[in-house]
Design a protein around this nucleic acid. Sequence first.
RNA 1: GCGGGGGUAACCAAGCGGCCAAAGGUGCAGGACUUAAGAUCCUGUUGCGCAGGCAUUCGUGGGUUCAAAUCCCAUCCCCCGCACCA
Length: 957
Amino acid sequence: MKERYDPHEIEEKWQRKWAEAKIYESDPDQDNEKKFFITIPYPYLNGNLHAGHTRTFTIGDVIARYKRMLGYNVLFPMGFHATGTPIVGLAEQIQKKDPETIRVYNKLHEIPLDVLDTIQTPEQIVEYFSREAEAAMKSIGFSIDWRRKFTTTDPHYQKFITWQFNLLHSKNKVVKGAHPVRWCPNDENPVEDHDILRGEDATIIDYTLIKFKLDNDILPCATLRPETVFGVTNLWVNPENHHVRIKVNDETWIVSKEAYLKLKFTDKNVELEGDVSAEELIGKKVKNPVTASYVLILPASFVSPGNGSGIVMSVPAHAPYDYLALRDLKGKELAKYGITEDVSSIPLISLIKVPEYGKYPAVDAVNELKVKDQNDPKAEEATKFVYRREFHGGVLTETTGKYAGMAVSKIKDVLTHDLISLGIADVFYEFSEQPVICRCGATCVIKMVKDQWFLNYSEPSWKEQVYKCLAGMQIIPPELRVDFENKVDWLKDKACARRKGLGTRLPWDKEWMIESLGDSTIYMSYYIIAKYLDKFKPEQLKDEFFNYCLLGEGTPENAAAKTGIDIGVLKGIRNDFMYWYPVDLRTSGKDLIPNHLLFFLFHHVAIFPDTLWPRAIAINGFVSLEGEKMSKSKGPLLTLKSAVKEFGADITRLYILSTAEHVQDADWRAADVESTRKQIERFYKTAFDIIHDKNNVEEAGELKFIDKWMLSKLQYRIQETTDALNKMQTRRAVQNAFYLLMNDMKWYERRGGSAARKKVLGTWIRLMAPFTPHICDEIEEELGGKFISLANYPEADPSLIDKGAELAEEITGNTLRDIEEIIRLIKIKPKRIVLYTAASWKKTVLKKAILMKKENALDMKNLMNALMSDPTIRAYAKEIPKFAQKVITDIQGMDAELMSSLIDVDFDEISALNEAREFLGRAVECPIEISSADAPGYDPQGKSRQANPMRPAIYIE
RNA sequence: GCGGGGGUAACCAAGCGGCCAAAGGUGCAGGACUUAAGAUCCUGUUGCGCAGGCAUUCGUGGGUUCAAAUCCCAUCCCCCGCACCA
């Protein structure tokens, strides 16, 4: 141990020693059933590891180290993710020498230009970044078992994925289906988020299309509120719009031209037959397929051809636009459409009852907002009000027949489903915002992708299993459990095959590549196999291999025969698997909750028995840089490598852990890291001084109050740290194990304590070892130990908790503060200070009062009675009532622990103050005298009578 | 729209019914040390106060309670996710 702290020298030294001693390489230990299998999502290899990874991985490493020190056999492996499209895309950009890509990878990812020239293919990219990632993780001291690393593009891994999908396929978890996607008609490709120029917030909304009949034609009306079909009084057609007649499958529909163009991309067969003029429609009567009543088609200007089918069903009781349009027709000449009746007298049909409005909410809303007509912007506002209130508080009335009494918020799916099965409705997809423009400039549409492979996550029985799994799991922090449950509920079928990118092909349909989130769900089990990869060729990893090793199906003999793998090896792998599985903890950034972590659960429950389902998930937030969001592709970006290079591993670790808790985002600020560096340096220096201070070698002798106080404090710090780590509150853990303990030590040294320093140091480095392993090992070595990672984590020793010492120190601290405050206020240089401890009768009063409080019997009357019956106290009858009143008030706001201390602990304030006398005198630069109010001695102002228990009176002159 | 998370002193951030004028850190101010700077340590950092005190504060407005930053109701504002993309 050198006098000057050199993080890089120390860190390289210990990383080398750890690797040489292989202390993080874990294998099943038959003598230790306490195993702990912790995993972290493997990083995606399209860039260098950054501060976000650093946070998630460091949290995992801390837990791994902590568990190891608690005596668990810990397995902490790591792999790399490379499947999918981004790496292929990156290779193309690099080959093209795209200036932006070159800049980003040179400047942000810190890859020298000459090196960038050598990583042109996806394979080279994967090779390069996996090497860099491993080096970076080693440089920060993660306690990973590197024998188990792999990359998802490895041929062996592809066999694993093949097996898995065959299995899911056979269990009917992978099915064929169709799904709407954002589609660029120009590129003829689905459009991803980052390919969108405009309208990136647009989501796909499914409208219900209700088929009104006009002779042999169908007029479909798109609606988000299919229940309102019961209140339709007419249809709306805009005479300005262009309408067409089209053949849809075996039906004939009339829609706007725009709707026709959209329908062409659905999974329906659509053929254009010809134009239809609005005049052909308006004035005709159509049949409502649900109520079988006939309603008129009327003209309205608000109907937009680009929205829905371009034909709108009118529900004036509940839709302000419909009501307004109907009202606008009053007195208009409609004879040219052959309409002779007075349409404004068409009766409204109410079907939703809502507390805020009367029978016709649309009418109330229009009147309330004084909307003029259908072109008034306020119509939009009125619509919002009505829709929101009806959705949240509305209930269907008798008008809706068998649906009466249902909540509006629940009806949509049920009714749509019913109507579709009757053949009188369909689904129509539409963007929530328009237009949506692709990067190429084309307007995007919604396309039904047909014959797509799906993981049918929406299957209720599968979800049931996941709920069951979740119920048995620990979610950290616990508040997120409800989030997980909601997301399981929300998850729909997921397309799991793609045409492009790296990956494994679908074994039964080789045109398709397995999508890259689908191949990352149960790979934790692969870490167990990965250790043995040099023992077999990819071709040997037939399904029988995995069936036996991971599922225990079939016999080892059969598996050996099929694969040509040694039967002993197979049995060994099976044993390893059963030892390590299930995953005890998976820690991850919060971005993976709605995708990867969900799939992780779904696939585990689908493939493994419940005894092997994951035990816990822990979530953490992101990392920003100086308040700015980090971005891999735009910057700013801080790589793990450069952070360690600049600050060293321990400082980086400690800082990133201490700056935020759990799901909160952490903000990396250079100024704060700098201060962490100073703290660590102080820690190092303190340790160095303690070890090399010759005067302290002999530490025997009577422990003073202050020594007992220090040891007592240490126990609390241990308790808090342990408790925090058990809840994975790394920030709180660091706070206690480092910063607060550091402050305790400062105070201890300032108070002249020394006898307990070495003892504290020995515990302290163990407490800190999971966070800053290198520096702790360096100090441990100097203390004569070896590999602190393998030492035991400190346990609080209740016998060292000393309430008396703590009270003594509290009195000392408070008294010092009081003296200083008085000096500051009266602005004199004190020449003489006298402290008076409280009269003993006051202590008796306080104790009696606390005892009464504990029995809930504390009031003035009871207390006075008790006091007056005590002859030793009655002597002070004159002073008692006032003091008793004060005591009662004080106790009201006192916490239980302090109360207990005050009655249980018997210690002498005088001796406590006497021990601190010299210190206090030095601190205020004035000699201090101490006496008791029982015999005050020198007391010119009678201050001693003000002395209270725990609060000595102070006289200054 | 749906779902989740937040609003605490100059800033970051703990606390989530009473030792709370509110941990810890940063910044700022003063002091000690030093030839000086830096580092380190101490003190202060809502207002008032020449004796350890008082008053007012935890987005805003109500309420419950002996007691509220903490519980309830209402309200305003901010952030994140909503999919075929890792």
